[in-house]
Design a protein around this nucleic acid. Sequence first.
DNA 1: GCCGTTTTCGGCCCGACTGTTTTCAGTCG
Length: 577
Amino acid sequence: MTITNAEIAETFELMADLLELQGANPFRVRSYRNSARVIRDLPEPVADIVAQDPKRLLEIDGIGESVAAKCQTLVQTGKLPQLEELRAQVPEGLLALLRIPGLGPKKAAALHKELGIQSVADLEKACREGRVRQLKGFGEKTEKAILENLSLAQQAEQRIFWADADQIVQQLLKHLKQAPGVEQAEVAGSYRRGRETVGDLDVLVVSTQPSKVMDQFAKFADVGEVLARGDTKMSIRTKRGLQIDLRVVPAESFGAALQYFTGSKAHNIELRSRARQRGLKINEYGVYRGEERIAGRTEEEVYAALGLPWIPPELREARQEFQWADQGKLPELVRLEEIRGDLHMHTSDSDGSASLEEMAEAAVRRRLRYIAITDHSPRVSMAHGLDPRRLRKQWRLIDELNDRYEGKLKILKGVECDILEKGGMDLPDDVLAEADWVVASIHYGQRQSRQQITERMLQAIEHPSVRVIAHPTGRLINRREPYQVDLETVFREAAQHGKFLEINATPDRLDLNDVHAAAARQHGVLLVISTDAHSPEGLDAMRYGVLQARRAGLSAQDVLNTRPWHEFSRLVWGKSG
DNA sequence: GCCGTTTTCGGCCCGACTGTTTTCAGTCG
């Protein structure tokens, strides 16, 4: 089994943790963390690069001789001697201590050195016996805080879905705006960057009366406890364990603060290093030349002061956004209003909850101009998959509806046809040939080898009636692990056969990332963002799909269903209809 | 450990808050 980029990244994260506990050079530690991040986001498996030409690793920003060599060792042997060595020196249980809020590498190391603590259990015992408070740099409060935070160690790193965070955000902003003197309130952080999950919330408020805002914040219905409160900054934890940080800033610093707290951390480090090169300093209050503030009121101002165009928050991950900005190639990210069609949805004929008419009506209300009805094929018996007879019956009804909606909505006669375990499609060719829009989908045999699954997908791509491949990246609802598929081959072949790849819009999983987007662009494949709705409300999930697409750096041009109907027809069938 | 419009050495983003201090280190974002 070849090692994945995620596994390599994890290895380097672990190296960083262990080195930090040993008190190693903090820049060396950061370097490992940086390598981990870069490798996690890499468009190509490190294993493939090593197999082709290991020297190419050195071309990647943030990876040097040492990490490149370690990558090679990891790919070839699956192990890393340097890591084993470090592990032998640092007790396993110490790593868990780092997960306790308030405990960092220095304190964890001191606990180990002075009190011989090797695990969370040891630490709890030492705290209860009052031994921790006697250590230099520790005190009664620290000891008490550790005991209180022990249970948090497990639930730390728990992130909530963006959609859930969004609900809290809307309530919180409404609540805060009721405080006197509030001019502006925004949520920054990973929420603003549109990450699929959010670990905490960073709220920014412009106000001349910070203490009034903080009082109001403390009265937010969800507040479980107040963690800290200073002059400009306050932190709380909600009853369900989500941390929310509040900063009150003056109007002239709002842009700088918004930029700073939106992050990402890696993006900000790059930005600051650029400021430094220009003899400028940037912090959450503004951009400074010496003592003089030269920007800060808006984000646009801040970026402009550094010679950069405004970079959309969804792109701020220190991937390629600076390179794009330098070359004037920042994408114009796709917007929800640009989506004109939804090409994957179910009705009560299979496992949907609403009738065909209800779905069509819902689409019209959402200003869609065309949709495809794509119920399941017979193999998905659990969902009452449609056989040819029922399918044709549904299609006759669609013909009628199309007459009724003439000029308002175009309904495509579609089907989500399974790609069978042993290859081939789940419906006869003559039936598929009658459909306007065939989505090919793998639901069964997901545990097959990468090669087998790729082969099945290729067959579907080559099938003359198939238009689009659903979940090409292998991510499906109810499956934690994606199935394995050779993306490179699938993208290339799809492009060659004029087929499309579908990205599902759901609030709780990520089908698409910048890696897939880059592959799509490279091969010239158009992507389809679909909701896979099973109810009228399901159509609203389109906003999550668009958010994913934006994070991946896609513009309207990269997405098939932003096209007006005549252009869509030409791209799909080679003629305008 | 990485990197170079200060290029093979000497730097590496910056500030708030807390607790333990009596001027600051550690942690966090």
